[in-house]
């Protein structure tokens, strides 16, 4: 077998392997925007730090008002996000594999959960918490800063989106305003 044939066979094997083998924690992490920029070595370190949790269908992940410590990435299954406030209870999102939630708690001290998360079916979640992030920043600052910047970016985008929604509600006919560019510009 020539080298070219060997490399071609190897490429086919890798593509087949990727397609048919069970999805690993690393695959899920790599698929999210938070961990996408990490190198293979940094990802393997994160893989050793995170917590894999199993939830039965209907089981609560967390409830509104509880103290939060970090975010969850959906590895398998799905999660319903329920807004559970004084005057209303409504489902606001159904999150699928690769989505993440609870990231505010990762950066805010003594953060309270603003919604309830329930497993929609048997679900596996990858938990990444503040102590894990702090440990990563302490031991491998390069990787820790990449994740911290990604979280900051996600939060900034959500802040902008929220501000835009507020502007839309306040002035539905005003097409010219752009809260995001204003927010990011300052």
């Amino acid at each position: 077998m020539s080298i070219a044939e060997y490399l071609k066979a190897l490429t086919i094997y890798r593509s087949m392997d990727r397609r048919f083998r069970a999805k690993t924690i690393r695959d899920t992490l790599q698929g999210t925007v938070l961990f996408r920029d990490l190198s293979r070595l940094e990802l393997s370190l994160v893989e050793r730090i995170v917590h894999l949790r199993h939830y039965a269908a209907g089981e609560t992940v967390f409830r509104t008002g509880e103290r939060g410590l970090g975010l969850y990435v959906i590895h398998e299954g799905a999660v319903r996000i329920v807004l559970d406030q004084e005057d209303e209870v409504r489902e606001v999102a159904l999150l699928e594999v690769g989505d993440f939630f609870g990231e505010v708690a990762l950066v805010e001290d003594h953060a309270k959960r603003s919604a309830t998360a329930l497993a929609a079916r048997p679900t596996q979640l990858i938990g990444f918490f503040k102590p894990d992030l702090l440990e990563l920043i302490d031991r491998k600052p390069h990787a820790g800063v990449k994740i911290a910047m990604a979280i900051a970016s996600v939060l900034a985008q959500r802040l902008c989106a929220g501000a835009e929604d507020d502007e839309q509600q306040a002035a539905p006919n005003d097409k010219g305003s752009n809260a995001c560019s204003q927010a990011t510009g300052t």
Partner: peptide, 20 residues
């Protein structure tokens, strides 16, 4: 009706399934 709906939804959300 809103109270009833809220109570049902909350109790459903808070009851853990037997497997869990």
């Amino acid at each position: 009706m809103a109270d009833l709906k809220r109570s049902r939804a909350t109790s459903a959300a808070q009851r853990q399934p037997p497997a869990a």
